[in-house]
Design a protein around this nucleic acid. Structure first.
Length: 423
RNA sequence: GGAGAAUUGGCAGAGUGGUCGAAUGCGGCAGUCUUGAAAACUGUUGUACCGCGAGGUACCGGGGGUUCGAAUCCCUCAUUCUCCGCCA
């Protein structure tokens, strides 16, 4: 949720920057400002009615204490109308407040000036490319066929137990999975992140805190008997550990990492996008989360991007980095760098990581604050990045490291998985 | 799952209907003393919102209610602790 002060102070800038997303927010912004005016006037009116009420109550108290019962009873009679009025004002006031909040919640984050304008993924900006795309002298297979050929993933078994989008990893596939998780966590710890094991279900407040609710409830699995949700990413529990906190500036940045399964309903997906490991209802991921002060968040984002680069290099995968255009940017992000690995067999790039600076958008919702040098209370900036999402990594390894009779495990990973080849 | 107790400011802890945004202690900050530090002493010290300001409003786990008036009474939810039961 963007700060209303930002709209009050820089209306034009807010509207202009949102255009980068292909969004014309001008009428919403005007509406918010208009309601904000009314809200302030109503608050003054309500406060003075309450003040009057408080004063009379005090007087009555004093009269009773002095034993002047008759006068007190007299004063009581006068409160009825005033009480009714302040109750009406309270209702009107909170109605206005709700209306403003609803509008504010619907406004996505303001893109950073570096975000290119554009509507679709074709407008994303490639800012870095590394690694050689292998050319195979044999008939290279896509990962879903390789997975079956070497018996590392069982698609049908997952369908039997649960449904489509819940594959079962077997044998060397399971060990690869486990090794990757440990590898990513160790790398994150080396980079200064604290490892957490968070809950994999969250309550409603947490959903609101990071921005999954009220908008995207359809994307989460909802446990209605207990009003809990399965996490779509461990970003949600990790960031929410800080909800409502007032942190010391010297403790920033706070860097957290966690492994978790991620659950996504992915309603509306179809076709080649969901083939094999490309899009699942349950997948494993190691996530990085950070809370920083406002001045250094972009330096921290750069460091996060460097960290992810290092991982892909150790996995010996050809990759590139995109700066997402406005139209492709998630609701909560001010800027996002996507990492994509080239899938040789599918002849397409697959998103493998996404690193975002959310600036104050989540911190404002969850009131995550720190005090700066001058003693002013400020909202933190929050950042998040995947390091990394496992299925895409496995797809990348299978497809790019295949030869005619097996798959070579990247050297850095061998100590973690305990074998050099899948065959 | 059953029974009981509890939830107050950074922490500890008092407060059972009015003068309570809330005693007291610890901690924090500023000062006195000291070459410096400690100790002692003095003062100060919650947050948010509205207002140019004076000032005002809200907040004692969350939500609702009773009352002229609620930290205090009632309802409800959550959490914590103790005992019993069950269990990896």
């Amino acid at each position: 949720m963007i700060e209303i002060s930002r709209i009050r102070e820089n209306k034009e800038e807010v509207v202009d920057r949102l255009k980068v997303r292909g969004l014309d927010a001008s009428s919403d912004i005007e509406k918010i400002l208009e309601l904000d005016q009314q809200w302030r006037a109503k608050k003054q009116e309500m406060d003075s009615a309450l003040a009057e009420m408080n004063k009379i109550s005090k007087d009555i108290g004093a009269l009773f204490q002095q034993g002047k019962k008759a006068e007190a009873e007299e004063a009581k009679k006068k409160t009825g109308e005033l009480k009714e009025r302040s109750q009406t004002l309270k209702t009107e006031f909170s109605d206005l407040e709700n209306e403003i909040n609803t509008l504010l919640l619907n406004i996505p984050n303001i893109p950073n000036p570096a975000v290119p304008e554009g509507a679709t993924e074709d407008d994303n900006e490639v800012i870095f490319e590394k690694g050689e795309i292998p050319s195979f002298g044999f008939n290279a297979l896509p990962h879903w066929d390789l997975a079956t050929k070497y018996d590392v993933i069982d698609w049908e078994l997952g369908v039997k137990v649960t449904g489509a989008g819940f594959p079962i990893y077997k044998n060397q596939g399971a060990r690869l999975q486990r090794g990757l998780i440990n590898f990513f966590l160790d790398e994150a710890i080396k980079a200064g992140y604290s490892e957490y094991v968070p809950p994999f279900v969250i309550n409603e407040d947490s959903g609101y805190g990071t921005g999954q609710l009220p908008d995207k409830e359809g994307q989460m699995y909802h446990i209605t008997t207990d009003e809990l949700y399965l996490i779509p990413t461990s970003e949600v529990p990790l960031v929410n550990t800080l909800r409502g906190d007032r942190v010391k500036k010297e403790d920033l940045p706070i860097k957290l990492t966690a492994y978790s399964p991620c659950f996504r309903r992915e309603a509306g997906s179809y076709g080649k996008d969901v083939r094999g490991l490309n899009r699942l209802h349950q997948f494993d991921k190691v996530e990085l989360v950070m809370a920083s002060d406002q001045e250094s968040s972009y330096d921290e984002l750069d460091k996060m991007v460097e960290h992810v680069k290092g991982l892909l290099q150790k996995l010996e995968l050809p990759y590139r980095i995109l700066r997402l255009c406005g139209g492709d940017l998630g609701v909560t992000a001010a800027i996002t760098y996507d990492f994509e690995v080239y899938s040789t067999a599918q002849e397409r790039w697959l998103e493998i990581s996404s690193c975002s600076n959310v600036e104050t958008y989540q911190a404002n919702r969850m009131k995550l604050r720190y005090k700066d040098e001058d003693g002013n209370t400020k909202l933190c900036h929050t950042l998040n990045g995947s390091a990394l999402a496992l299925p895409r990594v496995i797809a990348g390894i299978l497809e790019n490291h295949q030869d005619e009779n097996g798959i070579k495990i990247p050297e850095a990973l061998v100590p973690y998985v305990g074998f050099e080849r899948i065959q």
